[in-house]
Structure formats: C-alpha cells, structure tokens
C-alpha cells in the first residue's frame, strides 16, 4: 500500500507541476484532472475509499467540468500561449519558487524532526464511519459549510435573475 501511495503521490506532484508550467490552458486543465485522479488514488491507498471516490465525483466530475466549460467558452488561442510564455520567464518565477523552497525545507524539517510513527495499515474507513463523524463531532463545520453554500446559491440566483438582464 505504501508503494501505491508514493506512486500516485509522485504522479500528483508531476501533474500539478505541468499544470503550472503548461502554456496551453486546456492541456493544463487536462493535467489538473490527472492530478485530482492521482490525489483520489492517494486516498484509496490510505484506506479512505469514500473520500477518494468523492474527490473524483465532486472535483474531477463536476467542478472541473465547469472549469473546462469556461475555458472553452473563452476560446483562448495562440495569443494566450504567447502571454503565458512571457509570464513563465525565469525572472518571474524564480522569486516565488525560491520562497516556496524555503517553506518546503521547513516542512521537511518539521516532518522529520517530530517522531510521528503513523504507518499505512491498509484498513479502510467505510462511508458509515465518515457520516457518523461528520454529523457527530464535526456537526458545526458541516452546518457552517452549508450556510456558506446557501449564501453562494442566493448570490448566484440574484445575479442570474431575469430582471437583472432587462435592467442593463
């Protein structure tokens, strides 16, 4: 199981790197989908099949469809690729990358200095256990998230109502 975890985690990191460095927006989104699938595989190998399959359904199956939809509508052509290439000059990405490297070193230091001995045991958490936890100790977080989504829904409805189009 550890092999499966590191294998899919490696694919996720590589695919995400290509999302950042690719100049064609739709190809970058394709790599993003692969990255999400690889993260889902990480969940599977850690023994959380419910979280993994939800990652595919919600992120790869629904949210990314919206992303691809919008990018397709914009019909970004070769001018965007030229602009992306402009932005990917070493002088621009060197500063953020160096700062991120410092953070990565700090993360690695924290990970290796603390003696956490958690290992991948291969036992799987079923959907029932996830539900019991969500609606038990984490009920407040679920309710807050639902309120946030409701607010977003009301805002979207307000922007999309027929009268808004007539006024403009």
């Amino acid at each position: 199981m550890e092999f499966a975890f590191y294998f899919s985690a490696g694919i996720a990191v590589l695919a995400t790197l290509r999302v950042v460095t690719h100049t064609n927006p739709v190809h970058a989104l394709l790599y993003f989908i692969i990255s999400l699938l690889a993260v889902a595989m990480c969940f599977f190998s850690l023994g959380a099949p419910f979280a993994g399959i939800l990652e595919i359904i919600v992120y790869a199956g629904a949210i990314m469809v919206l992303f691809v939809f919008v990018v397709m509508m914009l019909n970004l052509g070769s001018s965007t690729m030229a602009q992306e290439r402009q932005w990917l000059k070493p002088g621009i990405w060197f500063g953020p990358a160096a700062l991120s490297l410092v953070l990565l070193i700090e993360l690695l230091y924290v990970l290796f200095s603390s003696d956490v001995t958690a290992t991948i045991t291969g036992e799987s958490v079923d959907a029932k256990a996830v539900g019991v936890h969500l609606f038990g100790p984490y009920l407040l977080a679920v309710e807050l998230a639902s309120m946030l989504l409701l607010a977003a829904l009301v805002a979207a409805f307000h922007l999309g109502r027929p009268e808004a189009k007539e006024l403009s």
Partner: peptide, 24 residues
Amino acid sequence: LNIGLLFFFAMAGLAVYAVLFAGW
C-alpha cells in the same frame, strides 16, 4: 466494491470529458 454505486457516478462524471474534449 463497497463503494460500487459511487464508482458508477465517478465514471459517469468522467465520461463527460469525451464530449467536451472532442468538441473543443
């Protein structure tokens, strides 16, 4: 699979990309 039904939803969700990518 213990998550059999969800696996179908996931694959149905991914099937959409065929049409999207072909069209674009």
